[in-house]
């Protein structure tokens, strides 16, 4: 565990907590894309399937449980919570996210490290995570009023993968040259998608 990866995990955790706080404190999810939250829930379920089979560390297991339960809680709130669900802008959140799931799945069938169920699920979750933010970015560009908690949520989410890229660079030079091309390419695409958001976020 290196500082970049720990910072990345903490930034990622913080982004989820900011979103949970916003929804819980304001009892509103206006400006939040439910589709992006659903995609993240699929990403975590597909990637953390090994939660019960491979024990890596207490930290690793605890964080996996936290990410799965928090993303499920956010989706539940946006779908079932009587007050919150009313504030969801269904007409604005129109990105066809099924296309993203299908594309990531096809990519994972073609480009994976080994043609096994686990590796294909892992690659699928990496590809899907790279594009999961798209519905949210589209919603932000449509909505005039980006409330600052939602803006901070997206900012921390962009920063987390940027830290992971630094982590991969660090591990490349310290741990030998594992083939990380799936993580590299997806991580760069993922962080790149935030570029225009960061540009406007800082300009505002």
């Amino acid at each position: 565990m290196n500082a970049f990866r720990f910072l990345g995990d903490m930034t990622h955790l913080f982004s989820v907590l900011v979103l949970l706080l916003k929804i819980y404190a304001t009892k509103s999810c206006s400006g939040v894309s439910r589709k992006t939250q659903e995609l993240y829930m699929v990403v975590f379920l597909a990637r953390y399937m090994d939660l019960f089979t491979d024990y890596i560390s207490l930290y690793n297991s605890v964080m996996k449980v936290v990410f799965i339960t928090s993303s499920a809680a956010i989706v539940w709130c946006m779908r079932r919570h009587p007050q919150v669900r009313r504030t969801y802008d269904k007409e604005q959140d129109t990105f066809r996210h099924v296309v993203l799931v299908a594309a990531a799945f096809v990519l994972a069938l073609i480009f994976n490290e080994r043609f096994t169920f686990r590796e294909i699920c892992w690659a699928f979750s990496i590809y899907l995570e790279a594009v999961a933010i798209l519905p949210q970015l589209v919603l932000l560009q449509r909505g005039r009023n980006v409330d600052n908690l939602t803006g901070q949520y997206v900012f921390f989410l962009g920063a987390y993968r940027a830290f992971y890229i630094l982590n991969w660079i660090y591990r490349y030079f310290t741990e030998g040259h594992h083939s990380r091309w799936i993580s590299w390419l997806s991580g760069l695409v993922q962080t790149g998608l935030y570029a225009d958001f960061f540009y406007y976020y800082f300009l505002r």
């Binding site: 990866r5 491979d54 690793n60 964080m63 080994r114 030998g176 594992h178 083939s179």
Partner: peptide, 10 residues
């Protein structure tokens, strides 16, 4: 050594 990427990351 193109070992597969370790899955110890979140």
């Amino acid at each position: 050594d193109c070992l597969s990427a370790p899955k110890d990351e979140l």
